[in-house]
Amino acid sequence: MKLRKLKKISRRNALQLIAVFTGTAVFPSISFAQSNQALDRINEITNGLGAIESDIWLDLPEIAENGNQVKVSFEMDSPMTETDHIKTVYILADGNPSPNVAKFSFTPEMGSCSATTRMRLSKTQNVYLLAANNNEQFFMTYAKVKVTIGGCGG
């Protein structure tokens, strides 16, 4: 009788343990997914619609020796007319203290959708580019940059 009771409890315990274990096993993967702040930010900007992964020329070094000065250039094919032009471009980084790097606002007067700047990268990470046209359609691309010396201090 005693043995049966023990068995019963242990089975329940086992089930609970499984639940606890799977819980803990699932939890890190959730927190890992949440740690991609750049994708979260993309979700926020696009209101959960997401973006089409498209062919945008995003020029970043494959290996950045100095994370303090990482040159980033991009160019997008767009007619840049009043009715069809790229309005905003976001640069986002998933491994920096904050995902936001820069937001560019373009106008049809510019004739092309292209810009260059220099950014800081604290560690090896993915850099995302999110573009929105005047019809609220979103496009994105990303590139991985290996950083030898971080550039965010602290």
């Binding site: 937001k103 810009a115 800081r120």
Partner: peptide
Amino acid sequence: MDLEPSISTNPYIVFQ
């Protein structure tokens, strides 16, 4: 352009 703290010292911006 909106700049965030992730932009490098001596901001360099090129556009067309």
